[in-house]
Amino acid sequence: MEAYSSVVASSNGPVIAVKDLTRTYLLGEVEVRALRGVSFEIEAGGLLAVMGPSGSGKSTLMNLLGCLDKPDSGSYLLESEEVGRLNDDQLARIRSRKLGFVFQTFNLLARTTALANCELPMLYAGVPNGERRERAERALELVGLADRMKHHPNELSGGQQQRVAIARALVNDPAIIFADEPTGNLDSKSGIEVIEILQGLNRNDGITVLLVTHDPFIARHTDRVLRLQDGRIVADEAIHHALIAGEAERPSNLDLEEEIA
């Protein structure tokens, strides 16, 4: 991927602005307070990592930001539109038009080709047949899978499957891509390939990217790290010289956590 210029903040205000967001799960009698009041803003064109120990609420936050779930309280402005109180169908519309998702477990439809998997979001966005195919092909080419379009998920490696998933997240031209541990099931080389693609989308196409990771080396490829603990943001750090995926060597003995801090 070619060299990229530094991020240009959008002049239209933040693409995401959350304030005092809470989410509590009810497990029978037990209340699990997964998010206890989270506030932050993300400028358009940002590339962010969300980190934190297991159970700290990272996935819960991603689901809320991705309009897959609704907060119990607080406000969520997505491109200046309050989405916290929208109904299911309105949220589906927003997911379809503005958002893309990449999951740790890929979540491709089995028995369905890479191409058809990529066409799926456009089906629900009402894109006509011919255009659907064309856009899916372009997206697969972009992630380097031009020669794997007719393959089924079980005929692809984990890294390739995740790239199909990224292509699928791309096809509706989203403003934001959410990736919850996209490299969690991959070896480090495939992981870096995935990050390289996400970085490229962010730098070249201006797509805002939020990714959850446990891997400090991966986090160093982003511009900003949000740290969660017990449902609260405990740190919000900028990274001034983000690594360029594929160029930097993974340090073997360096304590990256400390370097970031």
Binding site: A92, R93, R95, R97, N107, P121, Y124
Partner: peptide, 16 residues
């Protein structure tokens, strides 16, 4: 269930 969840995540409405 997973397939349905995924379809919803990529924009399927209830009626779809």
């Amino acid at each position: 269930t997973r397939e349905i969840g995924l379809r919803k995540a990529v924009g399927a409405r209830r009626q779809d």
